[in-house]
Structure formats: structure tokens, C-alpha cells
Amino acid sequence: MTRSLNAPLSPHEEVTLRRIALGAGFEIDLPVRDIARLRSLALVEGRAGRVRLTATGQSRFEALRRAPHPIAGDGMSSRLAKSFHRARQH
């Protein structure tokens, strides 16, 4: 477990881990190479085409540095995220 919590992740693997943690768990939508690496570290597991964090993966996600809050602007990021979420639900 220590290896899983301390192993370096590439920026792409970190983004994939974050995406899974935030609910984008359809394996077909995620980079195969990233999923393979995260599985080898026992950070994710999957079945029936979905990927989810393991308990260790959840701990690793919680330890990731958080992105700074966006500066107030036109809200484009928020609108894009909501649009993406709605599209994934259908």
C-alpha cells in the first residue's frame, strides 16, 4: 500500500485519477495506458466497463494537491462542466 500512495504519477495519470474520483468512470472514455498504471498500483479497479477508486485510490486522491479556485470570470468552466455532466447522464 505504501508504494501505491508514494509512487509518482505522471500528470496524465493524475488527471485520470481525478476524473475517476469525480465520477468519469467509464473505461472507454479513459486512457488505456493510465488505467493500466493505476491498476498496477491498486488505485483503481473495474468491472462491467466502469472504473472506480479503491480505498487506497481514494486516499491517494485526497492527498493530491488541490487546484486553486478559479478567478471569478464569465463562468465558462462551470458551464462546460455542467454540460459535460448532463451529456454523460444520457
Results as ranks from 00 to 15, higher is better:
61 F>A: 00
12 H>G: 05
45 E>Y: 10
87 A>I: 15
50 R>Q: 13
53 L>M: 04
5 L>E: 01
36 A>K: 05
79 R>H: 08
77 S>T: 03
76 M>G: 03
4 S>M: 06
56 T>M: 06
21 A>G: 01
45 E>S: 05
2 T>I: 02
18 R>S: 00
84 F>T: 00
19 R>G: 06
43 L>A: 10
60 R>E: 00
40 S>K: 07
71 I>W: 08
39 R>F: 11
78 S>R: 08
87 A>R: 15
45 E>P: 09
39 R>H: 12
67 A>R: 06
24 A>F: 07
4 S>W: 07
52 R>C: 08
3 R>D: 13
21 A>K: 00
14 E>A: 01
78 S>L: 13
5 L>H: 03
51 V>I: 04
82 K>H: 05
76 M>P: 01
21 A>L: 00
31 P>G: 02
29 D>F: 02
58 Q>A: 03
74 D>C: 04
73 G>R: 02
26 F>H: 10
79 R>S: 10
71 I>L: 11
15 V>I: 07
71 I>F: 06
58 Q>G: 10
58 Q>N: 05
49 G>M: 08
90 H>C: 15
49 G>T: 04
41 L>P: 12
71 I>R: 08
26 F>I: 12
36 A>T: 09
26 F>Q: 09
75 G>W: 07
56 T>F: 04
27 E>P: 09
36 A>Y: 10
50 R>P: 03
64 L>D: 14
32 V>D: 14
16 T>A: 02
60 R>Q: 03
69 H>Q: 08
85 H>L: 08
72 A>F: 10
90 H>T: 11
63 A>N: 14
35 I>R: 10
10 S>L: 08
69 H>R: 05
71 I>K: 04
3 R>G: 12
2 T>E: 15
82 K>V: 05
65 R>W: 07
76 M>I: 06
89 Q>H: 11
5 L>A: 03
19 R>N: 11
35 I>G: 10
70 P>S: 09
78 S>K: 09
34 D>S: 03
62 E>F: 10
27 E>I: 05
16 T>W: 02
48 A>Q: 10
69 H>L: 06
58 Q>M: 04
2 T>Q: 13
24 A>H: 15
7 A>S: 11
48 A>I: 08
87 A>S: 08
68 P>Q: 10
66 R>D: 13
37 R>S: 04
41 L>I: 05
47 R>T: 11
66 R>K: 12
80 L>D: 06
75 G>T: 07
31 P>K: 04
40 S>P: 12
2 T>N: 15
84 F>P: 01
78 S>D: 13
40 S>G: 11
61 F>D: 01
60 R>W: 00
65 R>S: 08
46 G>Y: 06
75 G>R: 01
32 V>F: 13
36 A>P: 03
41 L>Q: 09
38 L>N: 07
81 A>Q: 15
81 A>H: 06
83 S>M: 15
73 G>P: 11
76 M>F: 04
34 D>A: 05
29 D>K: 10
32 V>S: 11
35 I>D: 13
25 G>D: 00
90 H>S: 14
21 A>M: 00
80 L>E: 13
9 L>Y: 13
43 L>N: 10
25 G>P: 04
34 D>G: 02
3 R>P: 12
60 R>G: 01
64 L>T: 02
86 R>S: 06
6 N>E: 15
51 V>C: 08
36 A>F: 11
25 G>F: 01
